[in-house]
Amino acid sequence: TTIHVGDLTLKYDNPKKAYEIAKKLAKKYNLTVTIKNGKITVT
Score class of each variant (00 low, 15 high):
K23P: 00
I21M: 12
G6P: 03
N37S: 09
G6K: 02
I35R: 06
K39R: 13
A18T: 02
T9L: 13
Y19G: 04
D13K: 08
K17L: 15
L10V: 08
K11R: 13
V42E: 00
E20N: 08
T32R: 07
K27D: 12
H4V: 15
G6T: 04
T32Q: 11
T34H: 12
K17F: 12
T34V: 13
K16Y: 11
D13S: 07
K39W: 12
K28A: 08
L25I: 15
N30W: 05
L8I: 12
I40N: 01
I3A: 02
N37G: 12
P15F: 15
E20H: 08
L10E: 04
I35F: 07
A18N: 01
V33G: 00
K28L: 12
G38D: 08
N30M: 07
Y29R: 02
A22E: 00
E20S: 08
K28S: 05
H4Q: 15
E20M: 11
Y19F: 13
V42M: 15
H4I: 14
N37K: 09
G38A: 07
T43W: 10
I35T: 05
A22N: 00
T41A: 07
V42G: 00
K16N: 10
K16G: 10
T41G: 03
Y19N: 05
N14G: 05
K27N: 08
K27H: 09
T41K: 07
I21F: 14
A26V: 03
K39M: 15
K36D: 13
I40V: 05
K17I: 15
V5L: 14
V5Q: 02
T41R: 09
K28N: 06
V42F: 06
K39T: 15
L25C: 02
T41M: 14
L10G: 04
N30G: 14
K36F: 09
I3W: 00
D7Y: 09
K23W: 09
K16A: 12
G38H: 09
N14V: 05
I21W: 10
E20I: 11
K39I: 15
Y29W: 08
T2F: 06
N37F: 10
Y19L: 15
T1L: 12
V33W: 02
H4A: 10
G6M: 07
V42N: 00
T9S: 11
K28W: 11
L31S: 03
H4R: 14
V42H: 01
A26S: 05
L31A: 05
I3C: 08
L10N: 03
K24P: 00
T34C: 07
V5T: 01
G38E: 06
A22K: 00
P15Y: 15
G38W: 04
V5M: 10
K11C: 15
T1Y: 13
P15A: 14
K11G: 08
K17E: 13
E20K: 10
T32S: 10
V5Y: 08
T34G: 05
A26G: 06
T41N: 09
A26D: 00
L8T: 04
Y12M: 05
V33L: 12
I40M: 06
Y29T: 02
K27E: 13
Y12G: 05
K16D: 13
V42K: 00
K11A: 13
G6Y: 06
V33E: 00
L8N: 03
K16V: 12
L10R: 05
A18E: 01
G38Y: 05
Y19R: 08
T34D: 07
A18I: 04
H4E: 09
T34R: 09
H4K: 13
D7M: 08
L25T: 01
H4S: 10
K28D: 08
K24A: 13
P15R: 06
K24G: 07
Y19S: 07
